[in-house]
Every structure is written in structure tokens, then in C-alpha cells.
């Protein structure tokens, strides 16, 4: 597998055209996590620890932090189990926080197989009103992701899967005092001018195209464009 992943060169592709309108353009956010990990259980676990530690350090409420961990875990597990089908490959993970809403923005990219039918699984809860032997032992992953995540977007381009979503604070969930040492605010749309109508997650997307960014668009592999 080609695992080249230099700084993204097709930000326009990655920015996409579809955007939720739930967050105003110009919203500012800070990137909290920015990493690449292998598609394997212990690496996923280490990546999740990076996320929870960064969120806790940024004063993200514990409950919100837990929901992010669940959702990101399911997204990463899906990549490892289905996109890479148990084989080893890179997963780019970026997590940020919108300053206005407190939403946690998550972006996950991989070079594995596309989603079936180029869409998102329905994530329907398996039937539970059944006899013991009929209880489901799987099928909870996408249900949990859909139950927790908002604005879920999937895009396949240049041989790369990109999934992004946001987890919102619940009413009453207030961030603790934010350290003044936090990095300078970054536009939700990266260093580029805010573009009306884009999903706020686009700031992560845009950031992927900036030098050193991790959830950038990995350079397309030779001839694997789809």
C-alpha cells in the first residue's frame, strides 16, 4: 500500500462542497489533537488516550470528553476493521474545539477501502426484543457514532476516506477555565478567509492542507483516484 502522506495538496478537494449550516462561518476554534496512528487495536487505544488527555488539559467537561472518546473509538475501529480489513495502514486523526459552541470537531482520514456504496452506514440499533440467543454481539459501532455525532460527513477522494463529525456539549456542560496558554485562535476555516455556508468542521479540513497538519489530504496514490 502506498502510505505517502505529505502535506495535502488538494485542499479544495478536501474542503468539499457539502457543509452543514449549523455553525456560522468565521467561528473560531483551536486544534487540540493532531496525530497519525496505525490501524491496530493498541495504536487506536494510544490515539484515544492522546485525545482524552488533550481534551482534559483544555478543560473539556468530563462527560463530553467521554462521548468524544466513544465516538472517535468507533470511527477508528471501523477504519481498522473495515477500511483496512485488519491490515495495517495509517489513520490520520485531528480533533479541535469550536470556541463559540464548545463543540468538539473530529476528523479521521485513511487510505483503506471506501465505504460500501460510498455512503454512511445507517447505524440502526440491532433488535433487542429477542430471545437470548438472538441478542446482537455487533452492529453497535455506527449506532453509537450516529447517536453521539452531529454533522457526520463522509467523503472519498483521491483514494482517501475522510470522515468528520462534531460532538456537542449537553445543556449545563460548561468547560472549566481555559488556560491562557492555549494556542492562538484559529479560524474554523483555517488560515483562509471564512467561506459562508461551510460546515465548521471545514477548519479541520482546511488545516489539513497547511504545513505540518496531519488530517490533511494525503497525496493521492498513483492511479487510485476514484
Amino acid at each position: 500500500m502506498n502510505t505517502r502522506a505529505g502535506p495535502g495538496q488538494d485542499a479544495a478537494t478536501f474542503n468539499g462542497r457539502r457543509g452543514g449550516a449549523s455553525v456560522r462561518a468565521g467561528e473560531r476554534s483551536a486544534r487540540l489533537v493532531y496525530t497519525v496512528l496505525a490501524s491496530e487495536g493498541l495504536a487506536v487505544r494510544a490515539g484515544l488516550r492522546t485525545v482524552t488527555e488533550a481534551l482534559a488539559a483544555a478543560g473539556v467537561p468530563e462527560g463530553l470528553c467521554g462521548r468524544v472518546e466513544i465516538a472517535v473509538a468507533e470511527a477508528l475501529n471501523n477504519v481498522a476493521e473495515h477500511a483496512y480489513d485488519g491490515a495495517m495502514g495509517p489513520i490520520w486523526l485531528q480533533v479541535g474545539r469550536c470556541r463559540r459552541s464548545g463543540d468538539i470537531l473530529c476528523c479521521i482520514a485513511d487510505r483503506g477501502r471506501p465505504m460500501p456504496d460510498a455512503g454512511l452506514p445507517a447505524g440502526v440499533l440491532p433488535a433487542l426484543d429477542t430471545v437470548l440467543t438472538g441478542l446482537p454481539e455487533g452492529g453497535f459501532g455506527w449506532f453509537l457514532l450516529r447517536a453521539l455525532g452531529r454533522g457526520i460527513r463522509y467523503r472519498r477522494a483521491g483514494g482517501v476516506n475522510r470522515l468528520r463529525f462534531r460532538i456537542s456539549p449537553e445543556p449545563g456542560e460548561v468547560a472549566s477555565v481555559v488556560s491562557t496558554a492555549e494556542p492562538a485562535p484559529q479560524s474554523c476555516h483555517g488560515s483562509t478567509k471564512p467561506v459562508p455556508g461551510r460546515d465548521a468542521n471545514d477548519h479541520l479540513v482546511a488545516a489539513m492542507a497547511s504545513p505540518g497538519a496531519v488530517c490533511h489530504s494525503p497525496h493521492p496514490a498513483r492511479g487510485t483516484g476514484d
Binding site: 484515544l48 466513544i70 437470548l132 446482537p136 459501532g141
Partner: peptide, 20 residues
């Protein structure tokens, strides 16, 4: 501290293994 859908599936599998 943490259980994901795989862990949940494993707990359900144990329940089923115990039988009625």
C-alpha cells in the same frame, strides 16, 4: 473506564454463552 462496541459485544457474547 472505557468500553467500546467490541467490548459490549464481548459482554453480550458471555451472557449468551451462560445460557438461559
Amino acid at each position: 473506564d472505557f468500553l467500546d462496541s467490541s467490548g459490549l459485544g464481548a459482554v453480550v457474547a458471555v451472557l449468551k454463552h451462560l445460557g438461559p
